[in-house]
Structure formats: C-alpha cells, structure tokens
C-alpha cells in the first residue's frame, strides 16, 4: 500500500518538517470527518506519485490543536502545500486527484 509513504505530522515535528527543504503537503483530518476518509486514498496515491519530490503527511487535528489554529483552519479536510516553509496552496474540502496534481505541479519542477 502507498500509505506507508505518508508521514505522521504533529505539532512537535511540524516546523522541522515544513522547513526540511522539499515541498510538503499536509492533510488536516480527524477520525470523525467523513469527507476526510474519502480523501485519504487520494492522499495516499499522491504520496506514492510524488515519492522523493514532495513530502506528504497527515495531521490529526484532534491530537494536534496548535498547528490548525495557527493556520486558522476551521474546516476539514484541508490540504496545505508548503514550499520553503510558506503556504503556497490551500484546498478546502473534497477535490479530485487530477486537480490536486495540477496544483502540486505548479510548485514542483
């Protein structure tokens, strides 16, 4: 399965992850969020497709309250794409894989 390519991102490792050099896609989710579960397989596939080029991680908003609040996240699923530690793309709600790839490709050579 592709899901072993997806990292677990926490409040503790967030800063070091987004400043690690590569672009980082963070999926903010929770167990009780139906649409998040629907988006999860797509995120797994993106992790496999961009393996080595983009770090793909998931942050559980229940366990990690600080980072979602820092980015004023009030709805999930939300995907944030970071490049050089800065947010360059934000996607709220369910989105299909090809649209997501289009957004990522704008920032990945």
């Amino acid at each position: 399965m592709a899901s072993d390519k997806v990292q677990t991102i926490t409040d503790a490792n967030f800063d070091s992850t987004i400043n690690g050099g590569k672009p980082v896609l963070v999926d903010f989710w929770a167990e009780w969020c139906g649409p998040c579960k629907r988006l999860a397989p797509t995120v797994d596939e993106l992790a496999a497709d961009y393996d080595g080029k983009v770090v793909v991680g998931k942050m559980n908003v229940d366990d990690n309250p600080n980072t979602p609040s820092k980015f004023s996240i009030r709805g999930i699923p939300t995907l944030l794409l970071f490049k050089g530690g800065q947010v360059v793309e934000q996607v709220v709600g369910l989105t299909d894989k090809s649209s997501l790839k289009g957004l990522i490709d704008k920032h990945v050579a």
């Binding site: 969020c33 004023s72 009030r74 709805g75 999930i76 939300t78 709600g93």
Partner: peptide, 17 residues
C-alpha cells in the same frame, strides 16, 4: 471564508467551534 468559519458540513467542522 470557506474552511475559515464558513461551512456546509456541521459534522465535519462543528468541532472547531
């Protein structure tokens, strides 16, 4: 403001309020 306080899914986003 979708995702920043505007929502169409109470079960998804109620938690943030």
């Amino acid at each position: 403001l979708i995702g920043h306080g505007v929502s169409t899914c109470a079960t998804c986003d109620g938690y943030f309020f």
